[in-house]
Computed example of a mutant assay.
Amino acid sequence: MLTLRYVLLAVVLGFAAYYLISQWNEVSQAIKLIAPASIIVSFFFVALGLGFGTVSWIAILNGLGHRIPILRSAQILLVGQLGKYVPGSVWSYVMQMELGRQYGVARPRILITALYAAGVGVVASLILGSLALPVLIDDYPQLLWLFALLPVGLICLHPKVMTWLASLTLKLFRRPPLDHEVSFSVVLRSLGAALASYICYGIHLFVLVNSLVDPDIGTLILLTGAMSIGFTVGLVAFLLPSGLGAREAVLIGAMGMLLTIPQAAAMSVVSRMMFTLADILAAGAAVLAVIIMRKRLASEGSVNVEALPEDSELPANVANDYQRTDGE
């Protein structure tokens, strides 16, 4: 199984690197239109948004069972989500489950976390996406049906409903149901972090546009809504690598109200590249942090989770030891 994990990781990194390299010529031309300071600030908000997204995911993970240290949780998500660059985004879930298993977290729990985090993300994106309704009504009326998912999503985020659905999923995997109800604080913390993530992404796009024109606060609101709804559209287009092309169509429509279509297309390409680069750098940083932590654990003594029974959870006392060694 360990060999399979390394093979999966190599394949995922290969696809991500290929995408990065294949788009470079187009990106390098677009970057010439943007001031260097705008590139730095814009990328900072992409990284910050990715951080908030990670907090949202970890909140769900820890709300479903014993607490997993931040560094380990972040590695499961940040490395695992590189699987979205492989056509058919199911690979992201496969990677996350395999990485979770490496730390003794049952695969069903990781799958439930990934699905619920995606649901939280959809609810957050639709809430903020309503800010982009003027663009959707004029240019993409066929996407308005997405907002029908909002009331369904809000119902599913109710702690009792979330707990019931999670336990049902665990039952399908022949695992014991949750031993406690997911709390309102977990749901609110995850949703709040997801909203903050999309707001950061909206600011990222606003900074890029600001390098070409002088937009106002209304433009920031519009671009935040467009970026948010673009993520849900990209999620629906799951057969494409990371929703490739679907998100850009919405962003070009929004930016086209201020920029020429070629300029808007150039900004969307730069935005996509920043997200790819941030994903790769964040995954690398998470891996490096865990490697450093493992060396410290090795000197103090640790549990070999590879020897644990299939899909078993780390004992609570072991998880607590990991938390202490992580400085939490």
Results as ranks from 00 to 15, higher is better:
G225F: 10
G218S: 09
K295G: 15
H180C: 03
G49H: 01
A285I: 13
L146W: 05
A265M: 04
L258W: 12
I280T: 01
I217P: 07
V318Y: 12
R109S: 08
F206P: 04
A166S: 15
L149A: 11
G327C: 02
H180R: 15
G192F: 07
M95I: 03
T163Q: 03
Q323V: 12
A266T: 08
I155H: 05
A282C: 11
L78Q: 14
A124V: 07
N62P: 06
G218Y: 09
R296K: 12
A117F: 14
V152E: 07
K295R: 15
P262E: 00
A264D: 04
S271D: 07
P309Q: 04
I291S: 12
A307R: 10
S167H: 09
M293V: 11
A264H: 00
V135H: 09
E300Q: 13
L208G: 02
A114M: 06
W145N: 05
D138H: 13
L235A: 14
V94G: 01
E313A: 07
V86T: 08
I229G: 10
H180G: 07
L13S: 01
P309G: 05
D279P: 08
D311S: 01
D279M: 05
T3F: 11
E306P: 01
A249G: 12
Y18P: 02
R247T: 07
S268H: 03
L259S: 02
V250H: 06
A166H: 05
S92W: 05
V11D: 02
R175K: 10
A265T: 10
G63R: 00
D321A: 11
G153I: 06
L297R: 11
I127V: 13
A307Q: 13
T219L: 13
